[in-house]
Structure formats: C-alpha cells, structure tokens
C-alpha cells in the first residue's frame, strides 16, 4: 500500500515539473520526485513482521524473517546523488539570476 503513496508523490513531483515556470519551484518539484522515488525504493524491502537485518546474540540465525537490506543501501546512494544534483541545480539557479536577473522561465526564454 505504501508503494502507491510513494508513486503518488512521484507523480506530484512530475506534475510540478511540468506546470511550474520558476527555477526554484522546479528544483523543489525535482526533490519531491526524488523523495517519492526514495520512499518507493525503501518500501520494496519491507517485509511484514520482519526484523532489522542484523545478526545479534539474540538473533544468531539467518533463518529469521529479516527485511531486505539491499534497498536500504541503495536508497542511501540515491539520496546522496539527489543532494548533489540539488546543490548543482541551486548553483546554476544562482548563475541564472546573476546572468539574466530573473528566475522566471517565461521571461528567460525571451532572452
């Protein structure tokens, strides 16, 4: 069920990317899209009743029901990449403002 919520969030992000004509709003929409995607990745590893995938003295067997640890590792990488892209997007946004004096795409396209 949580997957549908994540996909809905991605769709909201995509919708924002299509309708917004402002650089900062586009960056925010891109983040909403990426956040939805990250939630989707995490939700894939969820197992009902599963425990954290760590072997301890109380859980010293691999036969127990663990949640899938791989999506958790993947999502970390995905978050880091998202942060990098956002930082670069903001740097370019600043450059756009310095060059054209506006962040409005409607006015940028005329220049």
């Amino acid at each position: 069920m949580i997957q549908y919520a994540a996909i809905l969030m991605m769709m909201i992000g995509l919708y924002g990317l299509f309708i917004n004509r402002h650089v900062m709003k586009i960056i925010v929409s891109l983040n909403v899209l990426e956040l939805g995607l990250n939630l989707f990745i995490i939700s894939i590893g969820y197992v009902t009743g599963g425990i954290a995938p760590i072997m301890t003295s109380t859980h010293a067997t691999s036969a127990l029901l663990y949640v899938d640890p791989l999506p958790q590792a993947l999502v970390l990488t995905s978050i880091v990449i998202g942060v990098g892209t956002t930082a670069l997007g903001l740097a370019i946004a600043r450059k756009i403002y310095e060059t054209y004096g506006t962040l409005d795409l409607e006015r940028l396209e005329d220049k």
């Binding site: 991605m10 995509l14 990317l17 650089v23 586009i26 891109l30 899209l33 990426e34 995607l37 989707f40 990745i41 894939i44 791989l70 999506p71 993947l74 995905s78 892209t85 670069l88 997007g89 370019i92 946004a93 450059k95 756009i96 060059t99 054209y100 795409l105 940028l108 396209e109 220049k111």
Partner: peptide, 26 residues
Amino acid sequence: PYHTFQYLVMGSIGSSLYLFGLIILY
C-alpha cells in the same frame, strides 16, 4: 546557464525514471 539548467532537470528526470524501472525489476 538556462540551457544547462534545462539539461540538468531533463537528465535528473531521466535517471530517476531509469532507477524507478530498475527497482520495479529488482
């Protein structure tokens, strides 16, 4: 910078869609 920004947004959407497809495949 405006065109670079366009490239960044399109590229990020593209790689997000690739990742989305890959995770479904996984």
